[in-house]
Design a binder for these strands. Sequence first.
DNA 1: CGGTGTATGCTTACGCCGTAAACTATGTCA
DNA 2: TGACATAGTTTACGGCGTAAGCATACACCG
Lengths: 228, 228
Amino acid sequence: MARTRDALTHDRVLQAALTLADAEGLDALTMRRLGTALGVEAMSLYRHVPNKEALLDAMVDVIVHDWIDDEAALKADWRARIAAIMHRAHATLLARPWAVELVTIRPRAGDGRLRYAETITTALLEAGFTPQLAHHGLHIVDGTIMGFTAQQARRPTAAALGDSVQALYNGDLAGDYPGISVTIREHHDHAEEYSLMVDLVIDGLARLRDGHLPPRTGSGASYARSLV
Amino acid sequence: MARTRDALTHDRVLQAALTLADAEGLDALTMRRLGTALGVEAMSLYRHVPNKEALLDAMVDVIVHDWIDDEAALKADWRARIAAIMHRAHATLLARPWAVELVTIRPRAGDGRLRYAETITTALLEAGFTPQLAHHGLHIVDGTIMGFTAQQARRPTAAALGDSVQALYNGDLAGDYPGISVTIREHHDHAEEYSLMVDLVIDGLARLRDGHLPPRTGSGASYARSLV
DNA sequence: CGGTGTATGCTTACGCCGTAAACTATGTCA
DNA sequence: TGACATAGTTTACGGCGTAAGCATACACCG
């Protein structure tokens, strides 16, 4: 049945997978359902994708690549460049909350992820960071994107978040948790908060580059030891 | 068969789940295998746990609670207090890499997580942060823990990381990715890098409290728009 | 001491999942 | 025309989470 028309391709499978995940979440992305979405049996997909893992990795790569897909922004000053990537990543992930899980966990690096890392690294190197500090910087930027976004993407599901959080809003637990009972009602603009963090991180990087070491609190080794 | 001896309890199930995940990873944690580990059929577990999701949530709560389980450290100066929590969290998660996936994704907040949030929040409030800033601060700290740790926990699996990273080390891709080809060989001490980030974040928080706003790069709204 | 109610764990079964293996139908080119 | 490669199908297997109903053994009461 090698029809020429409507032939399946790796890319059609990949796009359909993204669409399905967008529409119904990651749990709905099964090989059978993906097949159905493409009008095809599940096993047919295996002609174009070695296994589901590889498909997920490819999805990650598409998403991460998108973060640096803005030529205009990438010509600016290093701060603006990195800010652009961070904001784009944030927006992408909030639009596709299911992707957070994939992006934060999957280790396999395809071209998209490498290019993303490359873009940040060269921005830092060109801005006068030492290779060592650029390396740290990449991890700092990457970690900030993942951590912040994971956390904010976690929130929207707050409808089904657990009674405790409801109770907190009602002030019912003010005795047990006085601090968060106060702060939980604070005005909360995700974008604004993220923006603050982005600028804080970029400013921190600049200060590091210029030799302003933050006051050290300790190496952490003692805390690690206290776990045993 | 309500034996008095060796009776199953919620806590025994929970502990066994943690042990199994520690020993063989999260994929190995199935209800059947967990039952076997406890010398019991899978369905017996459901007398003590409503479903697997709830078990995973309970595991998360144990882990997060552990982050603030250090009374000595929690009496110190606010910087040291937050640093202690962050380092403890990092150490815990690196020791239990499988937990990263759970902790970063699961939204349901039990007592452990609430108490963790409470501890950080009150530390900040006591240190003179406004409720608004304390709220941001909690998210900043939490995001940093998750993001950084997820990333570092991702690395160790680098053995099975993909040929591209191997190639990078060999310098084979220096043409395509000149920046990371240079920086990837940088000396890399996870603990030291994390320490740097912790201090950078805490210093950033202090500066925020004291009114030193970092130079703003933009609200991010434009990048969000550029996605459409 | 014997009977009974109830908590605890077991058995069976269902509908999902990812995917291995073998098969069939199609289009290509000699 | 006929052989071959390619694309999609069929069938099947072992594993998953868990619903439903059953069996057992203890705790308590008379």
